[in-house]
């Protein structure tokens, strides 16, 4: 048996619905249609009245989730694309993220964001929003890179008493497969060492973990041992694991699919520079998408975001410095 990243998300939601009567799913086309990506396939049949089609009203969708959470429910909101969450941005960052701090009433909602680029999707169906949400206090931001994490982290997201922004990568939906669903997982807030090495730490998350792993494999043929750190969640960000990795390798390359100004890679570099400067044998580097909207054409798209090729080039340069 094999299960994809997308199926793992579907299975996690099925299990959350089965295990907890407080869970319901609300989003556009999630009901009988099973979602734009089929992440809720058959769930409306299996859990009648708990998988609810929403109008095209992202603001009201999140507002609805907050109100339901106040009443003790644990809603999962599917944004059809991460990009559309900007329409619900106000309710996420001002309503959901502040509720517990203001009132001591927790706001256990999960906002699923189908994130990141796939070729041909263009400027409005390709965005990675994790840095934007990580900037705001009161939110947990998850960026699973594996089938196992997609499953276990989504279940943990439902269990957490705070709003969780769950960035699931669309490119991984079908490409990534595992033999079975996991029975145990690292806790939220712990990064994973996806591959061990001693010459360079590539710190990545979500789909970029796989690009980094491909680079590690390629550079192993050149005699380099690359360590790949999978952050798993970008908020909280596991500084300890990153720092321990840099202590082993002396070199840092942070890779993210979102834009270069600020963001997760800048945060990683800033933390290592300020807290682990003496661990570094070379200036810490980072690689992000280009500072333009995300292009539609595959020729442009493959160059816009970091790929194994551009990461390998940056890694070689850093290894020689």
């Amino acid at each position: 048996m094999s299960i994809t990243y997308l199926e793992a998300i579907r299975e996690a939601q099925a299990r959350a619905l089965a295990d907890d009567p407080r869970v319901f799913i609300y989003g556009q086309d999630v009901g009988a249609f099973g979602g734009a990506f089929k992440a809720t396939k058959n769930l409306a049949n299996e859990y009648p009245g708990r998988v609810i089609d929403a109008p095209i009203s992202e603001d009201a969708m999140i507002g609805m989730a907050v109100g339901a959470a106040v009443e003790g429910m644990r809603p999962i909101i599917e944004m059809q694309f991460a990009d559309f969450s900007t329409v619900g941005f106000n309710q996420i960052v001002n309503q959901a993220a502040t509720l517990h701090w203001r009132t001591r009433v927790s706001c256990p909602i999960v906002v699923r964001l189908p994130s990141g680029g796939t070729s041909g999707s263009g400027p409005f169906h390709s965005q990675s929003m994790e840095a934007l949400y990580a900037q705001y206090p009161g939110l947990v931001v998850m960026t699973p890179a594996t089938v196992e994490d997609a499953y276990s982290m989504l279940l943990e997201a439902v269990a957490i008493d705070d709003p969780v922004i769950f960035c699931e990568h669309k490119y991984l939906y079908y490409h990534l497969k595992a033999d079975r669903l996991p029975t145990e997982a690292l806790p939220t807030g712990k990064a994973a060492i996806a591959r061990t090495g001693r010459d360079l730490s590539i710190v990545a998350y979500s789909a970029m973990v796989h690009e980094a792993l491909a680079v590690a494999e390629e550079l192993s043929g050149e005699g380099w041992e690359i360590e790949v750190v999978d952050l798993r969640s970008v908020k909280p960000l596991d500084t300890d694991t990153v720092m321990a990795s840099v202590a082993r390798t002396g070199r840092l390359l942070a890779v993210g699919e979102s834009w270069p100004w600020g963001g997760v890679t800048a945060e990683v570099v800033a933390r290592v520079a300020s807290e682990g400067f003496n661990l570094l044998d070379a200036p810490p580097q980072r690689l992000n998408a280009k500072d333009t909207p995300i292009p539609y054409h595959p020729n442009l798209w493959t160059v816009h975001r970091p790929t194994a090729r551009s990461i390998a080039a940056a890694a070689r340069q850093l290894l020689r410095s």
Partner: peptide
């Protein structure tokens, strides 16, 4: 308004 909606739905 939507928060009230959510409480009522719940």
């Amino acid at each position: 308004i939507a928060v009230v909606n959510g409480a009522l739905l719940a």
